[in-house]
Design a protein around this nucleic acid. Sequence first.
DNA 1: TGTTAAATGCGAATTCTTCTCGTTTGTACA
DNA 2: TGTACAAACGAGAAGAATTCGCATTTAACA
Lengths: 141, 141
Amino acid sequence: MDDLEIRKAGLKVTLPRIKILELLREHTDRHLSAEDVYKLLIGCESDVGLATVYRVLTQFESAGLVKRHNFEGGQSVFELDRGGHHDHIVCLDCGHVEEFIDEVIEKRQRTIVKEKGFALEKHALILYAHCSRGNCPNRNR
Amino acid sequence: MDDLEIRKAGLKVTLPRIKILELLREHTDRHLSAEDVYKLLIGCESDVGLATVYRVLTQFESAGLVKRHNFEGGQSVFELDRGGHHDHIVCLDCGHVEEFIDEVIEKRQRTIVKEKGFALEKHALILYAHCSRGNCPNRNR
DNA sequence: TGTTAAATGCGAATTCTTCTCGTTTGTACA
DNA sequence: TGTACAAACGAGAAGAATTCGCATTTAACA
């Protein structure tokens, strides 16, 4: 149940929070922007303000429930954090997101950083590509 | 000379453009935001407007003279494009930027994308780390 | 069920970036 | 070398994404 995760994060279990978590669970193929979440909420009775959406997403991020990514396009997008790091392939046409993790790349990164005398904190690897799904072409995100 | 590159890009050779190109040449250790460029220009007599800085940087980008990156922090940063792709290590403390290119990683990326049935267009790999330069700690960008 | 701190919604404020428009300035060509 | 004209400029308004401030509502827990 959603309640538990929110409670575990030390947050009150409120309708906006439950709804937002629910939405993120339903949309795993395409990461959602705050605006996206807001619009989806409007479309389903719940009357949640945009400021609340931003607030909740940011809190969820701090709590480790969601991850924020800065793909191209200026606005942040969010995805459920189901633990475990992964990188992304993003379709430039339809916004479809595919996850992947590659140990060869991960290892090389650590090596490179160490060689340069840095201490790796985190990384962002995004492959921008064109996917080949039937419903894709031109459905510009 | 700066003039040539600007001219070759099909742009008029104006003072703002010359100055901005000059600045980018002088700051290769740390990518500059439009704001950074604007402030540096103020600090050296030239009276260039912020709008012009954005305009010129965007034009330079289209012309292939500079590259725009979206590191963390919300604002775009720019670097001279000396041809040849590379990825970045960014110091979270001082903003220092180190470039690198790793063929192992490049190759793996192509393989992964192909396996998933995508056509790779471009990618962004940024390693966020802590550097160990003397003047670094806490000089929060 | 009442109290209280936390959360919400709204609109105003910020921040980064782009646009508009009247003025200035390279550039080509006489 | 002067002139005409499109291109470029500066300043401030406008726009997009995000955050803030505050009065009101609500979940939590006694």
